[in-house]
Nucleic acid binder design. Sequence first.
DNA 1: AACTTGTACTTGCAAAACGCAAGAACAAAT
DNA 2: ATTTGTTCTTGCGTTTTGCAAGTACAAGTT
Lengths: 135, 135
Amino acid sequence: MEKMRSDCPISCSLDIFGDKWSLLIIRDIMLREKVSYSEFLNSEEKIASNILVNRLNALEAEKILIKEVSAKNKSRFIYSLTQKGADLLPVIIEMMDWGAKYNANSPRKELGKKIQKDKTAVIKELSKELKKKIR
Amino acid sequence: MEKMRSDCPISCSLDIFGDKWSLLIIRDIMLREKVSYSEFLNSEEKIASNILVNRLNALEAEKILIKEVSAKNKSRFIYSLTQKGADLLPVIIEMMDWGAKYNANSPRKELGKKIQKDKTAVIKELSKELKKKIR
DNA sequence: AACTTGTACTTGCAAAACGCAAGAACAAAT
DNA sequence: ATTTGTTCTTGCGTTTTGCAAGTACAAGTT
């Protein structure tokens, strides 16, 4: 990190992913099976291409993601979560739960309902799945 | 909210507090007994006064905080969490846990160690405390 | 071989957000 | 009357973001 605002772990976290886009990219990888630049670019929130590049580089520099050439297509890059990135799962799940609770326009779907019933179980289960894909 | 980027609950949450400052203000109220403009202004991260006003207004507009005149000093305002704001506790705790785990400069103190031992218990306990102060 | 498509960026420019320094309004204390 | 405390505003320069367009280059198509 360039400049930390303080030693507070919350502040340190926000220094890394405290913006409107970083966690959406992580969500895409974590919960939506997206792995490439063009897939992120086509997400419903419509991130601008320069910001996407900027965030991917920042997240890679923080070792939250790692970037590798696709085995099948050499002109394609695959972004995967590291353990550090995968450990953001609880943060994502809690934000999802809060967002669903307080936003009328975001009704709970399958995952949202599971979270409502047993958050801990969901985190445990997804965490297990993520472990398989971690790089 | 003015313009939501999508219905995704994570995206909705980020639309509200996806920046470097909002959650620090909430942290100050939640975990540091701070309640007033000048106390927030003097936090170690040194938020600029215009940004502080802007965020307090935004969080109040979202009904995450409420602003009331102090009983003791009429020229002082007291900011308190609503239930909606207090429900951000799990998000804050998870960010704290992640930040402490991955940042060498933010060693765990009392609360951090408690979180490490039994996150659920900490959330339950603090949630109970917060309930007393909710407006 | 020329063309088209897919993938990952880059660039330019305007708009919005941020950071810093200074000051204003006003109640309370001295 | 003056000072202090508290909240908020203003001005101005820097940084970040948003949008549109364009570039580079590998792979597939005709």
